[in-house]
């Protein structure tokens, strides 16, 4: 049921975004400072992970424009809708990393 909702929201409200432009915008607007260049999140609570599997476009857009908690608000006059759509396209395009169990260096105990 959750996936149905995600698909619905994603297709009904997202704008068309360009992954390549989105990656450039992700860097230009400094999203990476708190979320990492591939949306992995940052150490010591600087920012949560965004990818893979970002939350739906409507929620993503809402959080960027009128954020909860400590995130600064990116309003339309400083982050145009198209750039935001491109950023979302980039975040959605980020492929999952290998799982921890597949990484020998993370077999730490």
């Amino acid at each position: 049921m959750k996936w149905v909702f995600v698909l619905f929201v994603g297709t009904a409200f997202s704008q068309d975004g360009d992954v390549k432009r989105g990656q450039a915008a992700f860097l230009k607007y400094q999203c990476y400072t708190c979320h990492g260049t591939v949306g992995q999140g940052a150490e010591r609570g600087a920012g949560p992970k965004l990818a893979p599997n970002p939350f739906p476009w409507a929620g993503f857009q809402f959080q960027v424009r009128t954020p909860r908690q400590d995130m600064p608000a990116y309003r339309r006059e400083h982050l145009p809708d198209q750039d935001l759509a491109d950023i979302y396209a980039y975040v959605r395009s980020i492929k999952p990393s290998p799982s921890a169990s597949a990484i020998p260096l993370l077999k730490i105990d």
Binding site: G36, T37, V38, Q40, A100, A102, I103, L105, I108
Partner: peptide, 30 residues
């Protein structure tokens, strides 16, 4: 387990993730 999964994110990224940096350092100190 949550920590290890979080560390796996951006494992091959450049610039290097801070988790990867620490995992590599641990590998020589262990």
């Amino acid at each position: 387990a949550r920590t290890r999964e979080a560390a796996a994110l951006a494992w091959d990224a450049s610039p290097v993730s801070t988790a990867r940096l620490h995992a590599e350092l641990w590998n020589v100190l262990k």
